[in-house]
Design a binder for these strands. Structure first.
Lengths: 334, 334
DNA sequence: CTGAAAGCGCTTACAG
DNA sequence: CTGAAAGCGCTTACAG
């Protein structure tokens, strides 16, 4: 900047003004400064700008797994509204690792991001408290309010679990399994609880197949367990905690000669684009992931606007309702 | 920091030292400072640190589409090695939009990131020049060297295209189509060129079905085009520029009553996890995406290490070889 | 081992 | 309309 000022023969304060208050500076000098900027290829140092100004325009987005299309789509939609509002997004991928999530959040803190949108791993990350304490606007996504001191947007996972198992019960299944894990994930816990309730009310057994992670490999692992069971006791319908598990399960079962849905019916969760394209098109519980992302970003923008205006902000909790999409993988039994 | 110093009754210089040169400060005072930090919940301001120190430990990762599992996996693997080396990753998603990519790169520049790993959209982003000029180490991924002034790591897309079409020719196809776009993407261009060459050598026709983007919707669009054609002239084998297009094509064809591979055989590209799980398991050209990501990150680390040591850095171009994975979607015709 | 002081690259009142 | 000066929160020689 000093170089720019020297080349344009003005003070650095004037250079700053052509950037931040262009109308305060004479067109002729403005032009001179702009020419100098272009000539030197100068790019302002955001660190210095923010340090001085006190706040920047960067929003941190953290999700537990970018590799899961559900989150990728969610990020995409959130990012779109952030950009439209003139903010930058910086994405953190926790890789299903709570420790990594902590690192990411810590980094956001050190970077003094303006706000954070978090799809948290644990039940209730302590870090959220630190964020709000540091006056960083935070909205939790894919998680509903639990007396948290911030805005939240989520889907009713309990209802989603019920929906899935209700459907299996209605299509005649009495031995049902839930495949998912780890149970430390609130999503998994809620979906399981919903399942249990539906199974109870439908007078069906519910076997829990615990898997370490919500990915395709975990689904294959679940398939191995099912294949080992005697056909008379083996569940005839499986509800998977997400579509990745469902896809892995489907692959594993087919590879080992079992038929879907005839031997085992499957219902997944998230309704990612790949669910419809699976070997046997997957029934799935659809979450409005695009709305989730957009809403989260809008809530954040609203909170920042309130902060700007010095108005007190009332935290909101938006909860969407999931719905069942039936496809071939759980077509009524013949 | 001032508050911490006051509470611990030391100067701010000493607080800084317990962070950066813990051994220079008496254990007893160090402890006092640490207690004060914990008590106040103080988090250092990275902006100030970097501004003063001159450089930080953040690496910018930019890809054209986080929503594509190929890139999500690539990011994941690159990120792993960055973390292991004590760097933070900040991800930018260009959303297939060159303008957005420019914004991302500009932001990286303003943020004075230490290095950038870029999976570029255009042929040769000018911004790369700006990055290197600003002494930001840059490595291009999913793109081989074109006399670029930086390290690159990529896969031979031309060979990949050949591989795919050779396979179709060998399994008896003479009317072949290439489905992909936009042609402005180097990847698409190279894969098409390879296809053309293989078609020529195999004495087969090659029809180009141009699509606007490499996603599932584009694949469905290609299906619509194919379905409209008379069976006698319709291509019997289609090579898709990536697996998303292939999956969309598969869906579209099946929905409209055509059989894969009997009516139309399909070969995709990338071999994402979902390819094997598709309605008809997809043949695909496999790229070692995990190696791509890891190698890119390692090249960057090496370049930074050289810079640190004041040694001149010799840019490297690593090129991997793709290979064909045959599955049902292109099983030899009966 | 600790403190005082300069300075990183900007912005922002305040004079002129 | 433009410039000089203070200060954002740190780190880093330099004294002591």
């Amino acid at each position: 900047m000093r170089d720019v000022a020297a080349l344009a023969q003005v003070s650095i304060g004037t250079v700053s003004n052509v950037l931040n208050n262009p109308d305060r500076v004479l067109p002729s000098t403005r032009e001179r400064v702009e020419k100098a900027i272009a000539q030197l290829g100068w790019v302002p140092n955001q660190q210095a700008q923010q340090l001085r100004a006190g706040r920047g325009r960067t929003i941190g987005l953290a999700v537990m797994d970018v590799t899961n299309p559900f989150f990728a789509d969610l990020l995409r939609s959130a990012q779109d509204v952030l950009f439209d509002n003139g903010f930058h997004a910086t994405i953190g991928d926790a890789d299903n690792n709570p420790q990594r999530q902590e690192t990411i959040l810590r980094t956001f803190l050190e970077q003094r991001v303006r706000g954070v949108i978090l799809g948290p791993i644990g039940a209730q990350p302590d870090e959220v408290g630190e964020l709000t304490k540091a006056r960083i606007a935070t909205v939790l996504v894919d998680r509903v309010a639990e007396s948290v001191q911030c805005c939240t947007v989520g889907v009713d996972d309990h209802a989603g679990g019920r929906l899935a198992v209700d459907h299996l019960v209605e299509t005649g299944h009495r031995r049902i399994a839930f495949a998912g894990g780890p149970i430390s994930l609130k999503q998994v816990q809620d979906r399981l609880d919903g399942s249990k309730q539906a199974a109870l009310e439908g007078d069906a057994e519910l076997l829990v197949i615990a898997v370490p992670e919500l990915d395709i490999a975990a689904g294959r692992q679940a398939a191995d367990e099912l294949v080992l069971m005697a056909p008379e006791t083996r569940p005839t319908g499986v509800f998977c905690a997400n579509d990745l598990v469902a896809i892995g399960l489907l692959q594993g079962l087919m590879a080992q000669g079992l038929s879907v849905p005839d031997d085992v019916a499957i219902v997944g969760y998230d309704n990612i684009d790949f669910a419809a394209a699976a070997a046997v098109p997957l029934s799935s519980i659809a979450q409005p992931r695009t709305d989730l992302g957009r809403t989260a970003a809008n809530l954040l923008m609203a909170e920042l606007a309130d902060a700007e205006a010095g108005v007190a902000h009332a935290h909101q909790s938006v909860r969407f309702t999931p719905n069942l999409v039936v496809r071939e993988s759980s077509a009524p039994r013949r």
